[in-house]
Design a protein around this nucleic acid. Structure first.
Ligand SMILES: [Mn+2]
Ligand SMILES: [Mn+2]
Ligand SMILES: [Zn+2]
Ligand SMILES: [Zn+2]
Lengths: 126, 126
DNA sequence: AAATTTATTCAAACTAAGTTGCATTAATAA
DNA sequence: TTATTAATGCAACTTAGTTTGAATAAATTT
């Protein structure tokens, strides 16, 4: 279940996502807010914000969890599915608001898919 | 660097992949070969087999590492890139030998991509 | 405004996947 | 057959994330 009470931890975390347009890893948030919020709380608040359709999560290329703001999702309807991009030079991760067509696969039912693209971002590309 | 000496551990691991057409997770291999090979050795041999173009690896939806046989890769040329499929009912993971077109992204250089599709496999689909 | 309820927080201990260092074993070459 | 050196096993470690239960803070009731 999502967030019920407005607390300081929630404000601090939401603020990080206001300041930043890119995705932020849970590990990085723990570092950034080290002195202010306990890591258990960070994981729990992120989880709740995801339930509420405020954030969405995905795994980066080495398996760590990243979070980014949702566009137009609600507690009941999560519709903001899209690929993610990880820059191999600077490490930046962000959402790609493009549609990639997943082909039909014979005899299989496709329910979800996650696409992680790696390469060089705007600033790092030659 | 890849494998230099043929050892019992390598034979045991390769045998697992002979018996199985699907991908196998590192965790599962450690369980299967518990009495026969140390887990450190398993991770190290898998790593070398990947270097040699015998196996390739990818992360499942929860971030654990999976391995599957390569088709036509060598130590110097790794060309067997493709999406993977994870069945939400039975947990089976396998390689999809299909091509999914990754669109151009303005101002970014796409180098790699990994696509993990989730759904129901042949046996589990209704 | 105080009391009560209940959600949230923190610290500490724990888990699971994977890695590292080093002594020992065993393939292969000499 | 001996010497060389890759491969292995073991234990300890790392990192990301989870669980626990008591303490605290927010919301609601009185
Ligand atoms: Mn996103
Ligand atoms: Mn594959
Ligand atoms: Zn970059
Ligand atoms: Zn299945």
């Amino acid at each position: 279940m999502g967030i019920i009470r407005k607390t300081a931890s929630i404000d601090l975390l939401l603020n990080e996502f206001e300041q930043e347009s890119n995705a932020i890893s849970a590990v990085d948030l723990i570092k950034r807010l080290d002195k202010q919020i306990n890591k258990t709380t960070i994981y729990r608040v992120l989880d709740k914000l995801e339930d509420d359709g405020v954030l969405h999560s995905f795994l980066g290329f080495n398996g760590v969890k990243w979070y980014a703001k949702c566009k137009g999702c609600t507690k009941s309807v999560h519709k903001d599915f899209h690929p993610h991009f990880q820059c191999l030079s600077c490490g930046t991760v962000d959402c790609l608001h493009i549609h990639v067509e997943i082909p039909e696969i014979p005899n299989r039912e496709v329910l979800f898919s996650q696409l992680l693209i790696q390469g060089k971002c705007e600033t790092c590309a030659v």
